[in-house]
């Protein structure tokens, strides 16, 4: 009921002047100033509601069908990409860890092997030295024995000569002292008994 008179009031000057220039709007304002504050002017409601419905409705549809899915997909893609990159980073880190572990394992192996080789080498050297020492010792022993046999031979021969010398000497002494012939066998027996 209230809408219609307001509308009639509005259209009356508008017919004379289609495009409301400043003067016209002031006239309209003046008219309304008597009664209605523009935001509360019911004459403008149908137009405002219609155009709001059209513009907001299209805006809503556009956002719902086009803009929001697009932004959503951008964010989704980014989230996926970040997750993927993080996964890849984690995988690479695992690989790096594995490589480090393998390297350390290899290092430990190498160290063990080196120790083994060193031990082997030192054992070899020791046994070689031992063998050489034994050989030298054996050679020395042999020469010692040879020397001992020689000494023993010399000693025996020397002792044998001692007998002969003693018999000769005794025979000579007896001959000088007693004169005459000396029984060699008696002298030898005497010497032997004296020596025993």
């Amino acid at each position: 009921m209230f809408v219609t008179p307001g509308y009639a009031q509005e259209t009356a000057p508008a017919e004379g002047d289609a495009h409301g220039d400043a003067a016209h709007t002031e006239v309209a304002g003046g008219e309304h100033g008597s009664g209605v504050f523009p935001p509360f002017d019911p004459a403008s409601y149908p137009s405002q509601l219609l155009w709001l419905a059209i513009t907001f409705g299209l805006f809503y549809l556009f956002l719902k069908k086009v803009a929001l899915p697009r932004i959503g997909s951008i964010l989704e893609v980014r989230r996926d990409r970040i997750a993927q990159d993080l996964d890849q980073a984690a995988r690479m880190k695992e690989e790096a860890d594995a490589a480090i572990a393998a390297y350390e394992q290899e290092l430990a192996d190498a160290r063990k092997r080196a120790t083994a080789i060193a031990q082997e080498a030192s054992a070899g050297a020791k046994s070689e030295a031992e063998a050489e020492r034994k050989q030298v010792e054996a050679a020395l022993e042999k020469r010692l024995q040879e020397s001992e046999t020689r000494i023993a031979a010399i000693k025996t021969s020397a002792l044998k000569e001692v007998d002969t010398i003693a018999e000769d000497t005794a025979a000579t002494i007896v001959q000088e002292l007693l004169g005459g012939k000396v029984d060699k066998a008696a002298v030898a027996a005497a010497v032997r008994s004296a020596r025993e």
Binding site: Y7, A43, S44, S47, Q48, W51, L52, I54, T55, L58
Partner: peptide
């Protein structure tokens, strides 16, 4: 009913 395209309508369009 008055469904005129007004300055208000224009700014609704501009906003959207």
């Amino acid at each position: 009913l008055d469904f005129s395209f007004t300055n208000s309508s224009a700014f609704m369009v501009a906003t959207a």
